[in-house]
Design a protein around this nucleic acid. Structure first.
Length: 726
DNA sequence: GCGACATTGTTTTTT
DNA sequence: ACAATGTCGC
């Protein structure tokens, strides 16, 4: 079979990686060095040379998007559907194993998946139930604690008894939480991974089976693996398996959520004869951008070492803008984006990247003001919306009555006269007799111990669910979803909400029906698993899909738009024009990471990720004054700016004029000789103010002034009798 | 059960 | 500053 096309257009290192002899490989792939290409070509190479069949390959990523992309690219290379090949996220694959072997994993057949919100609510509930002081043991912290322990592979019984109250309580809560999950048949994200690890570890027959099957394991973004993910890979690979790991230690930015960069080094020690290949040729950015990135990251210690280079053009200098404040900074970006578009370039070639989401608002306003369409990534996703989660909770109860988190969620949503008191009684009964709330509610009703009103309301709720179940049992999935939404009372409930909100919610519920309509076991494996397992019907599959793939932030409002996102979200993407805003000490690097060397280095890697997103042009900006948490604060430029050699930077000013450096208003004044940002002025009518912005020249020149008394105003310089205050 | 007021925290995010 | 909770009284 001719496989030369798999090597066409690849460089030396890439070819080496794609065509490497059997064995373990670690590919250190710098930003923009074609790592996805190498990964997919490697898979195609294995299949087309007959070293592996599709059936024998497992490819793991971190996000659904990456997994989808990878599958599509592999299928394009193989020119056939890669059926039998497992391509998915760590969580998706763990889920698949657990569905197939629920018995061995000690799970109920139709187990549900708890997302972080569900998890948070459950923990809060437990804290209350156990009469623990939630100000000393905050739910968020407990959630963090439990997830961190699971990520380390630690069950509560592995934990030493805590020494202080907080520690003790957290361990106790971890115990209680596990019991609750087990009783309710629910599994959180970390649990998926941990169970899948334990499943293989404790069942040698299964381990054998999968080891024989998956002789080739390929892992993307290896630097992001946490302890259990790594352990799972190692376990599954065993001695015979061949692991192809691709990663970049310089792009490790998820240490704070358990990712262990050390796994890259560990990999070389733990696996046999690991061949190390570096991909250092960058195909994305100009030499200038690359040099800046290299210089910056060189300030970190403990790197595996790698120097990106390019044959590409030198490119333009990186622009540095010192804004007066965050408004000025945002306006600057807007103006430069307009220039970009005026040159015939597209808006969607532009990204604005920031450290934290709070920064997006000012930017958003500036874009709106300049009438630049934009799109913000991050925020609530479809399946995370309250109304969607309510509807899903009903569906989950249909699938499994013992799902307490869902029971709690909708027992009185919409309000149906089941007050806190009644729920409290059910909860207590459930706890005392160690049964689900559904069961407890039935028991209480049977014992006739409730006041008539509460009793009737509760009975009505149970009857409602049973009848919804009976009446939709035979229906198709989307009909079933539609039926439940219609009969749960959610529609009436939300239509009472005032304003746009209620309407939007109802639209979302309708959208859920069409999501159900489109969902037809798109993960074809679920269908296999579903065969002969009534607990894993289409409904369950849909619910799992909703939990594991919470859906894009925005639907598909695909107007050509500027992209705005955090630096974290930007990893893996590239844009011709990139703005990195808020390059200030305490914002970036963030205040909470500044004092700890390890965390500071992670911030620097984040800066590295940001810089390397840019293909042609990169703007860095910082504001001298920033309003944050209601306070105006004077800032200092980020140390990361200083990490970049000065000769690669070019300071710019507002208004398209390039050239003269501009450090602070006082200096610029001498150069410019006219009004500039931060200039104090007096107006005969409006009084004292500060110049924020200016545009045009000569008779058309206008300035925007923020007056103490009357706020922001645009004034035509020729008419406004402005007086400069020295 | 709802609206009015108080309190609180406020990095980064996937699954 | 501000949003998102939580608490309290009706």
């Amino acid at each position: 079979m001719d496989i030369s096309d798999l090597f066409d257009g690849l460089n030396e290192a890439q070819r080496e990686a794609v065509g490497a002899a059997p064995g373990n490989l670690l590919i250190l792939a710098g930003a923009g060095s074609g790592k996805t290409r190498v990964l997919t070509h490697r898979i195609a190479f294995l299949v087309r040379t007959g070293q592996a069949s599709s059936y024998g390959i497992l490819a793991v990523t971190f996000t659904n998007k990456a997994a989808r992309e990878m599958r599509a690219r592999i299928e394009a290379l193989l020119e056939t559907p890669a059926s039998g090949m497992w391509v998915g996220t760590f969580h998706g694959i763990a889920h698949r194993l657990l569905r197939a072997h629920w018995q061995e994993a000690g799970l109920p057949q139709g187990f549900a998946i708890l997302d972080s919100e569900d998890q948070h609510r459950l923990i809060k509930r437990l804290i209350r139930e156990m009469n623990i002081d939630d100000s000393r043991v905050p739910p968020r912290q407990v959630q963090w604690f439990i997830n961190a322990k699971k990520d380390e592979g630690l069950r509560p019984q592995h934990l030493e008894e805590g020494y202080d109250y907080q520690q003790k309580m957290m361990i106790e809560l971890y115990h209680a939480y596990e019991e609750a999950c087990q009783r309710n048949g629910v599994v959180d994200f970390a649990e998926l991974l941990l169970r899948a690890l334990e499943l293989l570890r404790d069942h040698s027959d299964l381990l054998d089976h999968y080891r024989k099957r998956f002789r080739h394991i390929l892992v993307d973004e290896f630097q992001d693996t946490n302890t259990i993910q790594y352990a799972w890979i190692r376990l599954l690979a065993g001695k015979q398996g061949q692991v192809f790991a691709v990663g970049d230690d310089d792009q490790s930015i998820y240490g704070w959520r358990g990712a262990k960069v050390e796994n890259l080094q560990q990999f070389q020690r733990d696996l046999a004869d690991v061949q190390l290949i570096r991909l250092e040729q960058n195909y994305r950015s100009t030499a200038t951008i690359l040099n800046a990135a290299n210089a910056l990251i060189a300030h970190n210690s403990d790197r595996l070492g790698k120097n990106l280079w390019t044959e590409g053009v030198e490119g333009e200098a990186i622009r540095l803008y010192t804004a007066f404040n965050e408004l000025d900074e945002a306006r600057f970006a807007a103006e430069r984006i307009q220039d970009w578009c005026a040159q015939g370039r597209r808006r969607d070639e532009v990204a604005i990247l920031y450290r934290s989401n709070a920064q997006s608002r000012v930017l958003e306003e500036a874009m709106m003001h300049a009438r630049i369409p934009y799109r913000i990534y991050g925020g609530l996703r479809f399946f995370e919306r309250a109304e969607i989660k309510d509807a899903l909770a009903y569906l989950r109860l249909l699938a499994n009555r013992h799902d307490d988190p869902s029971f709690e969620r909708v027992v009185n949503t919409p309000t149906r006269g089941i007050g806190n008191r009644t729920v409290e009684i059910v909860r207590e009964q459930a706890r005392a007799t160690a049964v689900s709330m559904w069961q407890a509610a039935s028991d209480i009703l049977a014992s006739q111990s409730l006041p008539a009103r509460a009793s009737n309301a509760l009975a009505a709720f149970l009857a409602l669910l049973n009848s919804m179940d009976d009446n939709s049992q035979q229906a198709l999935l989307d009909e079933r979803v539609e039926y439940v939404i219609a009969h749960s009372g959610l529609i009436e409930f939300f239509s009472k909400e005032k304003g746009e909100k209620g309407r939007a919610r109802i639209e979302n519920l309708e959208e859920l029906v069409s999501a159900a309509r489109q969902f037809e076991f798109e993960d074809e494996w679920l269908e296999d698993v579903a065969q002969g397992s009534p607990g894993m019907d289409e409904l369950n599959a849909f619910l799992a899909h909703a939990a594991l793939e919470s859906g894009a932030t925005q639907a598909t409002a695909d107007e050509e738009a500027v992209q705005m996102m955090t630096l974290h979200t930007a990893k893996g993407l590239e844009f011709p024009l990139v703005f990195m805003v808020g390059m200030e000490e305490e914002l970036f690097p963030h205040k909470l990471s500044i004092d700890e060397p390890g965390r500071l280095e992670e911030e620097r890697r984040l800066a590295y990720v940001g810089i390397t997103r840019a293909m042609e042009q990169l703007y860095l900006s910082h504001a001298e004054v920033r309003r944050l948490y209601g306070e105006e604060k004077y800032t200092r430029p980020s140390r990361f700016i200083r990490d970049i050699p000065a000769e690669l930077l070019h300071e710019v000013r507002m208004g398209g004029g390039s050239g003269q450096p501009h450090y602070r208003p006082a200096e610029a004044q001498a150069v410019q000789g006219e009004l500039h940002f931060g200039q104090q002025v007096r107006h005969p009518k409006f009084g004292h103010g500060v110049v924020l912005n200016s545009e045009g020249s000569g008779a058309q020149a206008r300035v925007q002034v923020n007056f103490e008394e009357v706020g922001k105003k645009w004034l035509v310089l020729a008419y406004a009798r402005l007086e400069v205050i020295e």
